[in-house]
Design a protein around this nucleic acid. Structure first.
Lengths: 139, 139
DNA sequence: GTCATTGCAAAACGTTTGCATGAAT
DNA sequence: ATTCATGCAAACGTTTTGCAATGAC
């Protein structure tokens, strides 16, 4: 299997589009981590003609360009994060939400990993699993 | 969306099966992180009648019971890890492989995250992104 | 005898793609 | 005029499911 991670094919220009603008605005205006369908549903209110394919295409492009993050989990649709700065996430086992965890990001981990592997680490993503504060207090 | 993470429905008995045994043996006998299809293809050599559904069902059950780990990434089929002890992974951007990273696991991160969220952290999974040693040296 | 597990094939799901049209530069 | 982006609908790859049959206990 070949993993294609190349940035946009050599120097193709990115043209403005209403749709991309709407997606970007919607995603960056929220602090949760919506799925493509979530965004599609929301954006459709103001842009009734937008298509799901366009949402996916743009999310993909934005991720390639480092403008957003993707959060993948077993058995769940991918979630997107409008904040591209590396940070931690918590997947709550009770309510199913994915939340940001406000703690300092350990860039040192990348250094340790690079030392351990002899390779070159570009990023690390961390997903905590557990109960969020809301779910703890509700019970 | 409701996330179902419950362990096996109250106290249903787990009965032995040849197929599960083969899956367990195959997965735990290797240090890479195969997909369900990979395992299916391999196991089919000795158990020609096994079905892909059975492979998925058993992997799911084993994951629920904490016998194996799942590694999910955007755009890739889920990979399974026969070693359920918490540890780190590297996804190589050049060759596409997912490798173990031999470095001490930071349980302290869970404590920091619990403090930061006010919740209860059960685990954390880390996926590094970068180049593995093989790909660095090949270039 | 009971109930978990299987194989099979169909369906579900999330996502990607081809193509003709439209919009941005 | 060029070429990037869009909407649509069809296709894709992965995973799950219903069901009747089999196997474990």
């Amino acid at each position: 299997m070949i993993i294609v991670l190349e940035r946009r094919g050599n120097m193709a220009e990115i043209k403005f589009s209403r749709q991309r603008e709407a997606i970007q605005k919607e995603l960056c205006g929220r602090k949760d981590h919506p799925t493509a369908e979530d965004l599609y549903a929301k954006i459709r209110i103001e842009h009734p003609n937008i298509s799901l394919g366009t949402v996916y295409r743009n999310l993909h492009q934005m991720a390639e360009n480092g403008k957003i993050l993707c959060i993948a989990r077993e058995g769940c649709p991918v979630r997107f994060d409008g904040n591209p700065a590396p940070h931690y996430h918590l997947a709550c086992t009770a309510c199913g939400r994915v939340l940001d965890v406000e703690m300092p990001f350990m860039h040192e981990l990348d250094i340790s990993a690079a030392a351990a592997t002899g390779g070159e680490i570009h990023a690390h993503s961390v997903l905590f699993t557990g109960l969020c504060a809301d779910c703890i207090s509700k019970h």
